[in-house]
Amino acid sequence: MHQQVPILKIDDFWIASVQGSLHDQDVIEFKQALLSKIMQPKSRGLIIDLTVLDVVDSFVTKTLIDIRGLAKLMGIPVIIAGMSPAVAITLVEMGLSLEGVDTALNLQKGLDKLRNAGKER
């Protein structure tokens, strides 16, 4: 039994909302699904929403960093939105501060950020 992460599209932005903790296999599938979506022409940005996620492991974190690197190669900005304090503390304690990854407090602010970034270009 595995968990699908819904990947939605608003305007030209992709939004993936991670629900609950993911197994390693799910994480790999999630990454593949995301990459195939943002490969599509006209994609302008990706938001990964972690609002309901309360546990992360190092593999998920590594995948987040990977996704950001790959998307950057494709010219797509990535924003991580709605991380909870518990997750943030865990990551910092593990020494993974996701350097260079853009963050936003919530989905709305993430979208605003992407739109602004689009305008500046």
């Binding site: 991580i80 709605g82 991380m83 943030a88 936003a104």
Partner: peptide, 12 residues
């Protein structure tokens, strides 16, 4: 540093 990093992860 840790506090600042954690706040940044939240988006602040």
């Amino acid at each position: 540093m840790k506090t600042v990093q954690a706040a940044r992860l939240l988006g602040a």
